[in-house]
Design a protein around this nucleic acid. Structure first.
Lengths: 237, 237
DNA sequence: GCCGATCAAATTGTATACGATTATCTGCAT
DNA sequence: ATGCAGATAATCGTATACAATTTGATCGGC
């Protein structure tokens, strides 16, 4: 799973490629934290950057706003979303709500080949964890999300898969904003435990581990209200 | 709850009103089955109908395609979505997956005022069920969905609420396509049972009833593959 | 020096224009 | 009559143009 763009499902096979490419590029930039929350994304700039007209840039930004990664304010423009603590809590609540169900469906359809893929993902994750540097950190963030997306894909439900893609992407944004420790490094071992439980056929344990895992990620956040101070902060960077 | 547009949450407060109005109008038309699946929605026609340029019409159609109500095919245009049987099954699987969780969260936050609202909804539903005519049928369809949306709203999670809005809307489309009996008239009593179970504090029963209820709706569908025969059918109508 | 008003620049909102693609129609040959 | 070829019409994809709104700056008054 290289990126969210190469989803196996054929759901949005229809949209125009130009707009889609721009959307995916910006989404990756947001998820990998190359674009900080609050950053302005003016239509003109985006268009120039990708050598297209404002029309297409605007369409891409609109699309991202439907995913919750960008917030567009009337007559003011588009910004990388700046999720509130409450929004952050809702994102993780949603994940706790849906991921156990996805896990059960995935377990019901899982094949040895799938397990192999999952283990490969874990290996990659572990490798990145031991590396140093920004690039490795970004790759680690993405890999960590890919584990959850892979489960959604195995579940075979394209609708839940798309929803999970949204939730995982928004989670990255939240972690970028409110995360304290470098990265939820605890996460990796937890992923492994979940796979082990699935392999062992112990679904209840797997679901319990999943819920704990999501709560661990959320627990690493500092979700205390920060006044408008956060705004200045964004400009200072 | 008059329509999906007056959602209490402030999530998509940002989008332009013009496009949003058009989007909501078309969505309502699709959900109330005034627009049949497969119907072509050309940008020019939509624009003329609402007295706006193709630009805005296109934006509205794009938005609807993100919700799965419209499918846009490159260089061919937009059509009211024609969900496949497999897609239909995934929609109901998704609902079985998320609605029990939503129900639990809603039950945890529910107030007497909320219960009153729910009961009022049931009353309205019952009234519409006894009425005759297309108009009443359409209102009944919407009312039936509003019950589920109300629970999502009570749950207090704006993200799950939006997801449920999408699922309910797409369910209407599926029922329009594959529904056999006039309307899931069994649904109404089931809604009442669920509310009763919630009031009684019996969450496990409420969740069980909810899952059965969703399965009942799905069981009323005829999801056998129809070859391209269905296409001719569409033109014959 | 600080504050409010007016003007200029930048950006968004919407419409229109034009090239590209698809669908339809006609006419001719088989 | 049937089937294919070219032309014609309709529709989409994208860019550009213009109006409306916001933002920032300059200037005068206090």
């Amino acid at each position: 799973m290289k990126s969210t763009s190469d989803a196996v499902l054929s759901a949005d096979d229809s949209a125009e490629t130009s707009t889609q490419q721009i959307r995916d590029a910006i989404r990756d930039a947001i998820v990998e934290r190359r674009l900080s929350p609050g950053t302005k994304l003016s239509e003109g700039d985006v268009g120039n950057l990708f050598n297209v007209s404002r029309t297409l840039a605007r369409a891409a930004l609109q699309a991202l706003s439907y995913e919750g990664l960008v917030s567009v304010e009337k007559n003011r423009g588009a910004f990388v979303a700046y999720p509130s603590p409450d929004e952050a809590r809702q994102i993780f609540a949603a994940r706790r709500l849906v991921e156990p169900g996805i896990l059960r469906e995935a377990a019901a359809r899982i094949t040895p080949s799938h397990i192999q893929h999952l283990r490969q993902l874990l290996l990659e994750e572990g490798r990145l964890m031991s590396e140093r540097g920004q690039t490795a950190r970004r790759a680690e963030i993405k890999a960590s999300g890919d584990f959850h997306l892979m489960l959604a894909q195995i579940s075979g439900n394209a609708i839940m898969q798309r929803f999970m893609e949204e939730l995982v992407a928004r989670s990255s944004l939240v972690i970028a904003l409110y995360g304290q420790s470098t990265v939820s490094s605890c996460g990796h071992t937890e992923h492994g435990d979940i796979v082990a439980a699935i392999e062992h056929g112990d679904l209840d344990t797997a679901c319990r581990l999943m819920v704990h895992h999501i709560s661990h990620i959320e627990a690493d956040l500092d979700l205390r209200e920060r006044k408008s101070f956060g705004l200045k902060e964004a400009f200072a960077i």
